[in-house]
Design a protein around this nucleic acid. Structure first.
Ligand SMILES: [Mn+2]
Ligand SMILES: [Mn+2]
Ligand SMILES: [Zn+2]
Ligand SMILES: [Zn+2]
Lengths: 138, 138
DNA sequence: AACTCACATGAGAATGGTTGTCAACAAGGA
DNA sequence: TCCTTGTTGACAACCATTCTCATGTGAGTT
């Protein structure tokens, strides 16, 4: 059984620069909400920088593996991506109405997670912590 | 945009008791790991209490809506269900090797989540907090 | 610049968990 | 027993994501 793979260490295997990845990265850098691969693919098409859907998926995965973008799953199982301001470990407070996202840190929650894991003898612990709510604009 | 629906309050609309739901509930009450709908469907078949796959899905959703079972998504997007010991709000520490699950509470983390939301002016806040690791049997 | 070659791309097919359809069933009140 | 209505199950349909593979393109090398 594998509920949550450990696919961490993705040593920087020289990725080749392409127009497609550049366009995607540029688009994401100017967007603050979490968007799905399909959303991004559509926006690229509107904008003229047409990129194949499979390529969007592949690059998003690569960028996520490299830690360049954050991923989370919507309630209906769709993956959504976002280019965050910091490379450091953090979590998100997302508006479920408009997608507005705030990056949050929680030293307390980090130590809590580590402590709980230790007390139960678990090792190689990772965690998923996301907050959802309704922002002030609603 | 809807990243995380608020589908909470599902007033107890009298659900009609059936052999199928009983078999499913019974199976889940004797299982401690998180299992997928397909896993459960297969186990029911082995055991003789054959139940249609669609029915398994429907009942799991109903049970989840009623708060009778907990749901979480595996890394590959599959929903997995578990009948927990308590009805009270809690989280999980799951072994990614064998699925062994420990129910954990975190008053500190609850207040942290609420506080972060308040500071950013978000309302109707919910959170997703799950811990994954490797248990002592590995 | 021409040559090479491994990596990247894209159009479309395939995958697979989940949901929809709808006729046959069955719980429970009249 | 009869009716009404929620429930079931076999199978089709959905749809996000992955796979396939022929073609394209970085970037060294000569
Ligand atoms: Mn953290
Ligand atoms: Mn909590
Ligand atoms: Zn909002
Ligand atoms: Zn284990």
């Amino acid at each position: 059984m594998t509920i949550h793979p450990t696919d961490q260490a993705t040593a920087g295997a020289a990725r080749r620069p392409t127009r497609q990845r550049a366009a995607l990265a540029e688009l994401m850098s100017t967007t603050s909400e979490f968007l799905s691969a399909q959303d991004l693919h559509a926006k690229l098409q509107e904008r003229g920088d047409s990129v194949g859907l499979a390529t969007v998926y592949r690059n998003l995965q690569a960028m996520a593996a490299d830690g360049d973008v954050d991923v989370l799953r919507t309630d209906d199982g769709e993956c959504v991506y976002r280019s965050c301001g910091t490379e450091a470990h953090h979590h998100h407070l997302v508006c479920r109405e408009c997608g507005r996202t705030v990056e949050v840190e929680g030293p307390a929650v980090e130590t809590w997670a580590a402590e709980v894991a230790r007390q139960n003898g678990f090792s190689d612990v990772t965690h998923t912590i996301e907050l959802f709510g309704t922002c002030t604009s609603h």
